[in-house]
Simulated scan of single mutants.
Amino acid sequence: MILKNEVQLDGQGVQERLRNLLGAMVRWQTYSGELAVGIAHLLKVTRSYWSGLFHCYDVEGLPRTNNDLEHVFGKWRHHQRRCTGRKVIPALAVIRGSVQLVAAIATQLQAYSASDLASVSHSAWRLLRVQLQQHQHKRVQQRHFRCSPSKYLASLEQKLLQLTLLS
């Protein structure tokens, strides 16, 4: 019931209530009999996830469970397949997917105007474009290697020799 957050607490409030419950479980664990093993496991798992467990209560619209998050991704994949007419998601989603997914989720939460888009930092936008281009270049290199490994390695060797001859 605490993580369901029916009383609509913020992340700090949910964290405090769960901390109190877990503290009580630790105090009474010796009296729990056969449940002691399960309580120890719950405490261990909760401790490992603690740092990222409460963000969903502070960010409106952020899915609270893996199933909810997978549903968001699944809707995006379904949309991508419908847009392209393919049965599988396009390979471009690997390169541009991180940007497309964020844009798709953000536009579901609210509508953005041209002035909202114009207020984006140009340097941050350029940096993102460079990162996407670098990722795309890596994918192209991987494809070249898979298609013709000997040719790809020979071209790398040629470039290496040119670099050593220049120095």
Rank of each mutant, 00 (worst) to 15 (best):
V14M: 03
L160F: 08
Q136G: 07
R146Y: 13
H135F: 13
G61K: 13
L153Q: 11
R139G: 12
S48A: 14
R81V: 07
Q141W: 04
T107V: 11
R96M: 10
G52R: 12
L163N: 09
K4V: 02
L53N: 00
Q12S: 05
I95E: 07
S51E: 08
F73M: 09
Q142R: 14
Y57T: 01
Q162F: 05
N66K: 09
H135D: 09
G85M: 00
R82E: 14
L165N: 10
K4M: 13
Q131M: 15
E60W: 10
L153V: 15
V59P: 02
G52L: 08
R64F: 03
L165I: 06
N20T: 13
L101I: 04
L153T: 06
Q142M: 15
L109D: 06
E70L: 12
Q100D: 11
G97V: 04
A106R: 09
R86F: 13
R64M: 01
T30R: 09
W50L: 07
L9D: 06
W76E: 00
P149L: 12
Q136R: 15
D68L: 09
S150Y: 05
R86N: 13
L43R: 06
Q142A: 14
L156A: 02
R139A: 15
S148Q: 10
S150R: 11
I89R: 05
V99Y: 06
R129W: 03
T30P: 12
H41Q: 09
F73P: 00
H78V: 07
A36N: 04
H135Y: 11
S121E: 08
S48H: 08
R129L: 14
E6W: 10
M1G: 08
Q80W: 03
Q136N: 14
C83R: 15
L156Q: 09
T84P: 02
L163T: 07
P63G: 05
I105W: 09
K151P: 00
A124Q: 12
D58N: 13
D116K: 06
T164P: 01
G38I: 00
L165E: 11
H78I: 04
G11T: 01
S123L: 14
S150C: 05
R139I: 15
Q108H: 11
G11H: 04
P90S: 10
Y152T: 15
R19F: 13
C56R: 14
I39C: 08
